[in-house]
């Protein structure tokens, strides 16, 4: 499988990365190189093979459904580029 320029731009938008025309051109070549490399996986017979979902067979750990942390609003927004009274500020989303 290979990607064309329109696909590169669509994927970049899905990934929320702005790309220039020139970057999209360059990425198209690189992505096709990598996709060509991984193509060989198609030749492996995987009939009856389960996909690997965890490295060790183990049951998901559970814990009591209680609050164990919190009251750290200042800490949570401490690294925000823009915040006001412990709210993250973003450009207007809803008109």
């Amino acid at each position: 499988m290979s990607v064309d320029l329109a696909t590169v731009k669509r994927v970049a938008h899905l990934a929320r990365i702005a790309v220039s025309e020139e970057e999209a051109q360059r990425m198209m070549g690189e992505l096709n190189g990598i996709l060509g490399f991984v193509e060989q996986l198609g030749e492996v017979d995987v009939s009856g093979v389960e996909p690997m979902t965890s490295v060790m067979p183990m049951a998901m750990k559970e814990r009591d459904d209680v609050v164990t942390d919190g009251n750290k609003a200042d800490d949570v927004v401490a690294n925000a580029p823009i915040s006001d009274r412990n709210f993250f500020l973003v450009p207007k989303v809803v008109e």
Binding site: M1, V3, T7, V8, V11, A12, L14, A15, I17, M27, E30, L31, I34, L35, V38, L41, G42, V44, V46, V49, E50, P51, M52, T53
Partner: peptide, 30 residues
């Protein structure tokens, strides 16, 4: 990093999940 995000976004995008990610996870089992 951009290159890898792009590859990842592509292989997880609609229509390609089985061909790429699922196949790779099966190969991982092998």
């Amino acid at each position: 990093v951009k290159r890898r995000i792009m590859i990842g976004t592509y292989v997880l995008s609609a229509g390609y999940y089985d061909a790429y990610y699922l196949q790779a996870q099966k190969v991982r089992t092998l």
